[in-house]
Design a protein around this nucleic acid. Structure first.
Ligand SMILES: [Zn+2]
Ligand SMILES: [Zn+2]
Ligand SMILES: [Zn+2]
Ligand SMILES: [Zn+2]
Lengths: 146, 146
DNA sequence: CCTTGAAGCTATAGTTGCTAGAGACATTAG
DNA sequence: CTAATGTCTCTAGCAACTATAGCTTCAAGG
């Protein structure tokens, strides 16, 4: 049985984060020692590692909640899990496209500045006027399709 | 003179966001009409467009605050502004690298799943075990160097 | 056995960048 | 003039934690 500190160290998750996950129901309520301290077994470690890994891959806690409940009944079809992963892939691809445009625009800005006074600074100038940009680099929320 | 709604429409910023920017001191307190409604001139529009554009390029409000105060005295050197832009570029490059790794990993997961039961789902399996991943795709906060 | 320090407990508030709602006042179109 | 928008302030909420305060429990050393 692990204390919360040891569990956090093994899973690479900070202690308050573990308590937070329990609070929002992502982890079940832990067993308690005689002195009211949380105790965890290997199942909890696996579950926490799953959460941590999914977070590292950018899944939201809501998606992780669904993935966990799917993984809790292993005989069902995995179509729902695959759909969540595919949605996450799409999301990542969108952000990637956007970030790529941002990077190009920031590079242009930085390179074009000759480094004199603010009045002549290309960085300030471009920030004030999007028509000086080469790409669209739209804000994502601007392009919703309801 | 523009009302807050017109200003928002021209700058592509929602009305509550404008009030929020004023509240946190990013925009100066607006003039008021006889009936206590905010009124804006072209200077406010420029400033708001600057903020919006910088946000679209991923700058934080803190960075934008600094950029605005720099752009308010045009005779200074632009080194500080350029430094902020370069830092932002670095940040974007880091996120880009991370997202690229994520995308590769998600693609692997999705492609490898044959689509049967949860018990055999590659998505669930990989989420539970990072050693099945081909890349590191670390979480950024994990690699701090204090 | 006692003490000290680390680790754990709860509960609350703060972070970032907004967004949503309630309830009241202002403006404008018909 | 009335009805429909628009605007006002204030408060609370979102994700996903992080930090603080003030307490209790535990493990090790003397
Ligand atoms: Zn410059
Ligand atoms: Zn632009
Ligand atoms: Zn599958
Ligand atoms: Zn992995």
């Amino acid at each position: 049985m692990l204390t919360i500190g040891k569990l956090g160290a093994k899973a690479g998750v900070k202690v308050p984060t573990i308590r937070y996950y329990e609070q929002i129901g992502l982890l079940p309520e832990a067993e308690r020692s005689a002195g009211n301290q949380r105790l965890y077994g290997s199942k909890a470690l696996e579950r926490l590692a799953f959460i941590r890994h999914a977070r590292d891959l950018g899944f939201t806690l809501e998606a992780i909640r669904d993935l966990l409940s799917l993984s809790d009944n292993p005989d069902q079809s995995c179509a729902a899990a695959d759909a969540i992963a595919k949605a996450q892939l799409l999301e990542v691809e969108n952000r990637l496209a956007r970030l790529t445009a941002l990077k190009a625009e920031l590079e242009r800005m930085v390179v074009q500045c000759a480094g004199g006074r603010i009045a002549d600074c290309r960085v300030i100038e471009v920030l004030g006027d999007h028509s000086l940009c080469a790409t669209d680099h739209l804000h994502p929320e601007t392009e919703e399709t309801p």
